[in-house]
Lab assay of single mutants.
Amino acid sequence: MSIQHFRVALIPFFAAFCLPVFAHPETLVKVKDAEDQLGARVGYIELDLNSGKILESFRPEERFPMMSTFKVLLCGAVLSRVDAGQEQLGRRIHYSQNDLVEYSPVTEKHLTDGMTVRELCSAAITMSDNTAANLLLTTIGGPKELTAFLHNMGDHVTRLDRWEPELNEAIPNDERDTTMPAAMATTLRKLLTGELLTLASRQQLIDWMEADKVAGPLLRSALPAGWFIADKSGAGERGSRGIIAALGPDGKPSRIVVIYTTGSQATMDERNRQIAEIGASLIKHW
């Protein structure tokens, strides 16, 4: 067993022997301040990774656009098919120029040779490549099948209805392509620590998230040296922004954090800054 596999296998073990965790309302004060600064709703939840206990939450059962955070769930569904012998990570998928959609920095470079399922998941999570996500959605049967996968996990809230990039439209009061912070946090925890996926697939999923290259201005910008984070960000229309993450000190994750916002007129930089400040408060009061 590799060191990384050992780390993920012992996530519940280490967490069980940690000192009790206590909620700190100071972080919620910052979440509410972010709402004021952005002029928009902000949803927040913080779960203990081992027990699933909610440590703090704000608007945990209000719907927010998922945006690209759905790509972690998508690759979880792909990995479940791999575990069941219905898919192979090494299978190569070929596609054409007509398949390319807006923001496809990886797939646009491989029109000639195609990409493997493993490479597509890596591109979808680490670079948020939209064509990679659409190609992977095709392998599982489309958005409705991802929703069905989530329902089978016990998540009857999260739903995907459309493809990239239309799913980022974020129309107010439109339930399409949305989740709730509580539902997303619980589902992410199941994917990373539950028995739904094999140990190898859980490790692969967290490795992809740990290698995320496009979430630097968010929670990662607030992390002290030595902290662990595996995350996936999302951005959408109407001032929408979000991030889902597993993080913790001492090089291992111990909490799940989900943050979503929508309806702001603020710039992307300002949305990023507010999420980073929430992260800084979380870490300060850990």
Rank of each mutant, 00 (worst) to 15 (best):
residue 283 I to Q: 07
residue 236 G to K: 01
residue 113 D to G: 11
residue 22 F to P: 05
residue 137 L to H: 03
residue 267 T to C: 10
residue 122 S to L: 15
residue 93 I to H: 05
residue 219 L to F: 09
residue 105 P to H: 06
residue 42 V to M: 10
residue 6 F to K: 13
residue 5 H to K: 14
residue 105 P to L: 06
residue 145 E to Q: 12
residue 176 R to P: 04
residue 127 M to W: 13
residue 130 N to S: 05
residue 144 K to H: 09
residue 58 F to L: 11
residue 195 E to S: 12
residue 141 G to R: 06
residue 1 M to T: 02
residue 68 S to T: 00
residue 262 T to L: 07
residue 142 G to V: 02
residue 83 D to R: 03
residue 190 K to R: 14
residue 91 R to F: 06
residue 33 D to Y: 15
residue 44 Y to V: 07
residue 102 E to L: 10
residue 252 K to T: 11
residue 94 H to D: 11
residue 256 I to G: 02
residue 54 I to G: 04
residue 159 R to G: 04
residue 114 G to Y: 05
residue 178 T to V: 05
residue 179 T to S: 09
residue 117 V to F: 04
residue 51 S to K: 09
residue 2 S to A: 08
residue 83 D to G: 05
residue 127 M to D: 07
residue 252 K to N: 11
residue 63 R to M: 07
residue 266 A to E: 12
residue 23 A to N: 06
residue 131 T to M: 05
residue 41 R to D: 07
residue 162 R to M: 06
residue 95 Y to D: 01
residue 275 I to F: 12
residue 277 E to W: 06
residue 131 T to A: 10
residue 250 D to F: 12
residue 128 S to Q: 00
residue 99 D to E: 14
residue 119 E to H: 09
residue 155 D to F: 01
residue 71 K to H: 00
residue 60 P to Q: 13
residue 270 E to C: 12
residue 25 P to K: 10
residue 197 L to N: 05
residue 217 P to W: 05
residue 244 I to P: 00
residue 138 T to S: 14
residue 141 G to H: 07
residue 110 H to Q: 09
residue 115 M to N: 03
residue 286 W to K: 02
residue 202 R to G: 07
residue 156 H to T: 12
residue 22 F to H: 15
residue 10 L to Y: 09
residue 8 V to I: 14
residue 207 D to M: 11
residue 80 S to G: 11
residue 270 E to S: 12
residue 35 E to N: 03
residue 10 L to D: 03
residue 23 A to G: 14
residue 137 L to S: 06
residue 38 L to V: 07
residue 238 R to H: 15
residue 223 L to M: 11
residue 80 S to W: 12
residue 36 D to H: 10
residue 159 R to M: 07
residue 37 Q to Y: 15
residue 101 V to T: 15
residue 222 A to L: 07
residue 187 T to F: 06
residue 250 D to V: 10
residue 280 A to Y: 10
residue 264 S to K: 05
residue 280 A to M: 15
residue 126 T to S: 13
residue 3 I to M: 08
residue 252 K to V: 14
residue 70 F to T: 06
residue 88 Q to K: 12
residue 61 E to M: 14
residue 144 K to E: 15
residue 107 T to V: 08
residue 242 G to F: 00
residue 278 I to N: 00
residue 79 L to R: 01
residue 53 K to W: 10
residue 218 L to S: 03
residue 214 V to K: 08
residue 181 P to Q: 00
residue 70 F to P: 00
residue 179 T to M: 01
residue 112 T to K: 15
residue 192 L to W: 08
residue 275 I to G: 01
residue 70 F to L: 05
residue 124 A to Y: 00
residue 215 A to Y: 04
residue 55 L to I: 14
residue 199 L to H: 12
residue 63 R to Y: 07
residue 117 V to Y: 03
residue 54 I to S: 08
residue 124 A to V: 08
residue 147 T to L: 07
residue 120 L to Q: 02
residue 181 P to H: 01
residue 266 A to H: 10
residue 89 L to W: 06
residue 139 T to G: 10
residue 173 N to K: 13
residue 213 K to M: 14
residue 242 G to D: 01
residue 185 A to Y: 00
residue 66 M to A: 07
residue 108 E to V: 14
residue 65 P to V: 04
residue 152 N to R: 15
residue 197 L to P: 04
residue 27 T to C: 08
residue 16 A to I: 10
residue 27 T to Q: 06
residue 10 L to W: 07
residue 11 I to Q: 05
residue 71 K to T: 00
residue 70 F to N: 05
residue 241 R to C: 04
residue 198 T to W: 04
residue 122 S to M: 15
